[in-house]
């Protein structure tokens, strides 16, 4: 049985629409117009214990709304959710002890006190035994290198330090399921890398089920084998990252640096020239023809360097969003 299963989940919001200007305001004073926005529209999927799944979509796609439904924050319009045998919105305390929702740039710590005070509060809130608390805190503090800042007021910490402290707070009770909503947002590259390593480590060590949403494709590339692509509240793709990349990589780029200046006449016959200056050239060719074209170039020209590039995952995903086809 899946750890998490979602069946025909929908969440619709009623949105008040007002025409701009004074006339619109007067009209809306007497009669208001509402529209229904389908934030999540009939989605179904399931996730097994220990899976690390990337939830990808542009702003307003429905990612966060789905996570909010899964964590019991908001009440679904229709559909069924079962997580560890619980219906999230019932907010059974046992269920809440098994999950954690981490929202990037959102503080759940007491602002004017050191993070340690919040950790002690969470210890009581989650009823964590003393020994378990000490052990987990030690592990997390070591993993995230936080020892020096545990007793510093939260408001005096940098964004990266605070984000790491937030993560610790959300993991003290060793949740079996982790909902990570943009955990690296606003962080510099080094800190993003540290958070990623930590998430990977946590997933392995505790066999935790993790759902991650992120705008940074590096997060998804490095952490998730499986991705769910969502747009306009509907799932466009649910499967392995490799498969979607392979399926959408019909074209590859060949970048060449010639030893001597050359002409582009022959190259034009082999593929589409994206750039050419006599010494450097970039060709776009069908992936079936890559071997033949590179063989031809290497045999006919004096080449200093030749590289074959896959299109960026960002480009592929963005292509999927714009065409809404997978």
């Amino acid at each position: 049985m899946a750890t998490l299963s979602v069946s025909h989940l929908s969440k619709h919001f009623r949105i008040y629409k007002k025409e701009a200007g004074l006339a619109g305001s007067i009209r809306s004073f007497f009669k208001r117009t509402y529209e229904t926005s389908k934030a999540v529209d009939d989605i179904s999927f399931s996730i097994e214990q220990g899976e690390l799944v990337g939830f990808i979509g542009p702003n307003g796609a429905g990612k966060t709304t789905t996570l909010k439904c899964l964590s019991g924050l908001i009440y679904p319009t229709s559909g069924e959710i079962n997580v560890l045998g619980y219906t999230p919105f019932d907010r059974n305390h046992e269920y809440l002890r098994s999950i954690s929702l981490v929202m990037g740039q959102k503080s759940q710590l007491w602002w004017d006190l050191p993070a340690m005070e919040s950790y002690l509060l969470y210890k009581e809130m989650y009823d964590i035994p003393e020994m378990h608390f000490k052990k987990t805190l030690d592990e997390l503090v070591t993993l995230l290198d936080l020892k020096e800042i545990l007793h510093v007021q939260v408001r005096k910490l940098s964004l990266g330090q605070r984000m790491k402290c937030e993560l610790v707070a959300q993991l003290l009770h060793s949740p079996k399921i982790l909902f990570l909503d943009e955990p690296t947002i606003g962080l510099d590259i080094v800190m993003q890398q540290k958070i990623r390593s930590f998430v990977r480590e946590y997933n392995k060590k505790y066999n935790a089920t993790i759902i991650l949403t992120s705008h940074y494709m590096d997060d998804v590339k490095e952490l998730c084998k499986r991705i769910i692509i969502i747009n306009h509240g509907r799932i466009l793709y649910d499967g392995s990252l490799d498969a979607v990349v392979s399926k959408h990589t019909q074209l590859k780029k060949i970048s060449i640096i010639f030893e001597k200046p050359t002409t582009q006449d022959e190259l034009e016959k082999r593929g589409k020239i994206l750039s050419f200056d006599g010494i450097n050239a970039t060709l776009e060719v069908n992936k079936d023809k890559v071997a033949a074209v590179t063989g031809y170039i290497l045999s006919q020209y004096s080449v200093i360097d030749l590289t074959i590039e896959e299109p960026q995952i960002e480009e592929i995903i963005s292509g999927i969003f714009s065409s809404s086809k997978v």
Partner: peptide, 9 residues
């Protein structure tokens, strides 16, 4: 309220 709804209290 998000901060409280996910807590077992």
């Amino acid at each position: 309220l998000v901060n409280y709804l996910t807590k077992p209290i």
